[in-house]
Design a protein around this nucleic acid. Structure first.
Length: 495
RNA sequence: GCCCCCAUCGUCUAGGGGCCCAGGACGAAGCCCUCUCAAGGCUUAAACUGGAGUUCGAAUCUCCAUGGGGGCACCA
């Protein structure tokens, strides 16, 4: 069992190389939960050492995404902190110094092999069906010669000198000891020829210097996990708790998400990118709840707010197996959290979608509409379809839809006229005053409630599916309702 | 090809030797409620990958097989 009385320092360390996706967001969530649960710190560190792949705006997207989700970090490139800088390109010298330490101690060495030679080497190994490996040419160089060539400015990288004998045992919190023969590990590059570190050095150095206690990362790092442990041990540092989170699989469960899957999701109104979630009408609460439960299980009561997750979270309950993404469940959690919103909160959240649809919004009216559509929304943008008619000057019901099942146009028009007479006789229209007389009419007419209210619904809302009729009538008001009814009767009676 | 990891309903999962002829959630089906659509309530179908062991007893421990996933860069 894990001790949650010691403050944990955890970090999410994305590379600004593309859109922030679910995997990164879920790691950030677990980081955040652990930090908040223990009273520790949650840190954002930007791993931007691959200049070729860095894309402008990607870092901002990460910052925006975390903020939208409500996963506020205590230290990061834009907020600072006592262990900065938090952008790896700004920590160049630190990595260089640490690489030097390793070289001095004989745990690393300069390598002068050119990419061309390395390519050739790999091709030959492949032809011989050997495991791809650095062949150790520069590992065999004497330290004096190596130092001389470095001093002369010869282009080189720094490689880690992996032990060749024995095995490395690394401990993952979810999987236990992971053992690998050292001969299966390679002399990985620590510092590239551009002077910037690779992940293998940078992340280890930063995690140590930033006093990270728990490293949560994707299981794609499992392969190089023993290497990382060796690097840390070469420095003589203590190890954090290592937690390798499972990857997300495409909805079919066959393989991990590809660019194609991302596009496919978009066509269905879903996304694997956090930046899209807001526009698609998803709420941070829903997305968070959904992500949390892919890789973490609770026995019951799985609808949780962030605070509730903090209370219940434990790294001991994380699951090591891959999880297929299930968008239907995102819909479910989103709708569930929408239903938990107050009228005012919901009104505020749906307003941008209505405005975006071209409606001018009266806030007082919106506040009355919110409770009527709340349990009908799966995503926030559904409000346009459900409530747009409240904000229209007039509606355009179709003649076909105005005709009730089992009736013809003339009979339907008669229903309209009867309703018109009833409503115009009432001093004002609210739920109580409207329902009684209309139901009495249903009884008198010998028609079904479905038929009568169906006609009125289409006449007044312009659509076959709408929020409850009486409440809608009350909100729209007598004048407009009668107007719309009149128009519907005209449509029905016209040729 | 080599290395590593994983394995409970279709999906996400609970489970840590007897509380399990396996619990919850999504999805599906049915019923109830009902002015439409939802929401809500109730109900049903649906799983321990296989084989050996250990044990009085295995979904739980071990081994093997199978299946799935990840990785084998001067990317992270």
């Amino acid at each position: 069992m894990t001790d949650y009385t010691q403050p944990a320092r955890v970090r999410v360390a994305p590379s600004p190389t593309g859109h922030m996706h679910l995997g990164t967001a879920r790691t950030a969530l677990y980081d955040y939960l652990l930090a908040r649960k223990t009273g520790g710190q949650f840190i954002l560190r930007v791993e931007d050492t691959d200049l070729k792949r860095t894309v402008p705006g990607a870092e901002q997207e990460i910052v925006d995404g975390l903020r939208w989700l409500g996963l506020n970090y205590d230290e990061g490139p834009d907020v600072g902190g006592p262990f900065g800088p938090y952008r790896q390109t700004e920590r160049r010298e630190i990595y260089q110094q640490h690489a030097d330490i390793l070289v001095d101690r004989g745990h690393a060495y300069p390598c002068f092999c050119t990419p061309e030679r390395l390519d050739q080497m790999r091709r030959e190994q492949q032809a011989r069906k050997e495991t791809l490996h650095y062949d150790g040419t520069c590992r065999r160089l004497g330290p004096d010669e190596a130092a001389r060539r470095v001093a002369q400015g010869e282009r080189h990288v720094i490689r880690f000198k992996m032990p060749r004998e024995g095995a490395t045992v690394a401990h993952d919190h979810l999987r236990g000891d992971i053992s690998i023969e050292n001969k299966n590990l390679d002399d990985y590059v620590l510092i590239k020829s551009d002077g910037l570190p690779t992940y293998h050095l940078a992340a280890m150095v930063d995690d140590h210097l930033m006093q990270i206690t728990h490293v949560l990362r994707g299981s794609e790092w499992l392969g190089t996990f023993p290497l990382h442990v060796n690097v840390v041990r070469a420095f003589g540092w203590g190890e954090p708790v290592w937690i390798h989170l499972s990857v997300f699989l495409k909805p079919s469960g066959k393989g991990k998400l590809s660019k194609r899957d991302a596009e496919h999701a978009m066509r269905d109104g879903y996304s694997v990118f956090i930046k899209d979630m807001e526009d698609l009408g998803f709420t941070p609460e829903g997305v968070l709840n959904w992500m949390a439960l892919m890789g973490w299980g609770v026995p019951e009561d799985d609808v949780m707010s962030l605070d509730q997750m903090i209370k219940r979270f434990s790294i001991d309950n994380l699951t090591p197996s891959p999880a297929a993404i299930n968008f239907a469940k995102l819909d479910h959690f989103n709708g569930t959290h929408i239903r938990l919103l107050s009228d005012a909160e919901l009104a505020g959240r749906i307003k941008p979608f209505l405005v975006g649809a071209g409606f001018s919004i009266n806030d007082e009216l919106l506040l009355k509409v919110a409770p009527l559509i709340r349990e009908r929304l799966v995503t926030l943008d559904d409000c346009v379809a459900f409530a747009g008619f409240f904000f229209k000057e007039d509606v355009r019901p179709s003649r076909d839809e105005l005709i009730a099942k089992g009736l013809d146009a003339k009979q339907s028009a008669a229903v309209g006229r009867a309703a018109y007479a009833i409503l115009s006789a009432l001093p004002d229209l609210d739920h109580q005053t409207v329902e009684g007389p209309l139901r009495a009419y249903v009884d008198r007419s010998g028609l079904s409630a479905n038929q009568v209210f169906g006609i009125l619904r289409v006449a007044i809302t312009g659509q076959k599916v709408s929020p409850p009729l009486f409440e809608s009538i009350a909100i729209i008001g007598k004048e407009k309702c009668l107007e719309r009814l009149k128009k519907a009767i005209d449509i029905l009676e016209g040729s």
